Amino acid sequence: MTDILQRARRVLDTGQPLPPEELLEILHVPDEQLAELSRLAHEVRLRWCGDLVEVEGIISLKTGGCGEDCSFCSQSGLFKESPVRAVRLNIDEIVEGAKLSHKNGATEYCIVAAVRGPDDRLIDQVGDAIVAIQREVDINISASLGILTPEQAARLSDMGVRRYNHNLETAASHFPRIVSTHAWSERLDTLRLVREQGMEICSGGILGMGESLEQRVEFACQLAGLEPAEVPINFLDPRPGTPLADAEVMSRGDAMRAIAMFRLAMPATILRFAGGRELTLGDDGTEAGLLGGMNAIIAGNYLTTLGRPAETDLDMLDRLQLPLKVL
C-alpha cells in the first residue's frame, strides 16, 4: 500500500476529510493501487453514510432553448448545431414521471428546467406539479431551476421543495473557461439562499471538462465547504454541437480516482452517480463506483442523454446486497 493510502485511512476513524494536498496525492495513486483505494473509499462510505443507496428520478419540465452558454450543455439555444430543441411538458406528464420514478425505487424526484432562472409562470407550474404529485405519489420533491432571487427561493420552500439542485459545475478557477454568460459566484449566491430558506443543498458538477487535477481537488473542497446534503457527480459526455463536442472522454482509472477523492473530501455526504457514468466507466462502472465511494444513483435516463434501464440498476443493487433507501 502506498504511503498516501496509509495516511488516508485515518478518515475511517475520524470522519474528517483529507486536506487538499493529500487529496491531490489520491489523484496520483497508480493503477495497481486503484483497487485498494476503492476499497478504502467504500469503507469510509459505509462507516460515515451507512449502506443504503438513494435512488432519484429526474424530469425536464423545460428542455432546450436556454440563453446561457455552458460549454458542455446541448440545451443552450446559442449552440445552433445542437440537436436539442425546446420542449415543455404538462402537469400530467410530470406526474407520470413521478409515478415511474417511485416504481423504480426512487425516494427523490427532481423537476428540472433549462433556464438561467425561473419566471413566475415557471414557478407557478412547478407549484401545480408538486400539488398534483403529492396527491398521487409518496416521494420527496427536488427542483433545479437555475439562479434564484430571495423571493423565489422562499416560494419554492413554501411549496414543499425539499432539496434544491444548482451545480457549481467545476472549480471557480476553471469556470470562466466553461461559462461566460454568468459568474460562478452567482451560483454560489443561489445555494446560500437555498440554505437560508431551509431547503437542502444539492450541488455537484461535471468532471473531465479540461480541468487540471489541482482544479479537481479545488472543486471538491469548494463543494465540501458548502456542507451539501448531496453532490451529483457527472462525467463529461461530449454532446454534438457544443464547444466540448470533441473533448476526450475521461478514463475509467481517472474517474475511479476522482470518486475516491470526493469521498475522502466529503466522508458523510451523499455522492450521486449522474450523467456520463455509462460512457466513462463502462457496463460494470456503476457497480464499481458503488463499491468505490458512491452511495446514490439517478435511475433511468438523464436530461438529454440515455442512461441504463432502471431495472438493470435495481438488479445490480440486489446482486450486491446494497439496500435501497425508502421513505
Rank of each mutant, 00 (worst) to 15 (best):
R177Y: 07
I178P: 07
I178D: 08
V179F: 03
V179Y: 08
V179W: 07
V179D: 04
S180T: 15
S180H: 11
H182T: 12
A183F: 10
A183Q: 12
A183W: 01
W184A: 12
W184I: 09
W184M: 05
R187D: 02
R187W: 03
R187L: 07
L188I: 05
T190V: 11
T190G: 10
L191D: 06
R192D: 07
R192Y: 10
R192Q: 14
L193Q: 09
V194N: 08
R195P: 06
R195M: 06
Q197M: 15
Q197V: 11
E200R: 14
E200D: 14
E200W: 12
I201M: 01
I201Q: 02
C202M: 13
C202V: 11
C202K: 13
C202G: 09
S203N: 01
S203W: 11
G204W: 07
G204D: 09
G205N: 02
G205T: 05
G205S: 03
I206P: 03
I206C: 05
L207S: 08
G208M: 09
G208C: 14
M209Y: 05
M209W: 04
G210H: 06
G210A: 09
E211V: 13
L213S: 13
L213H: 10
E214I: 07
R216P: 00
V217T: 14
E218D: 06
F219I: 06
A220Y: 02
A220L: 04
C221G: 08
C221M: 15
Q222D: 11
L223N: 02
A224P: 13
A224D: 12
A224E: 15
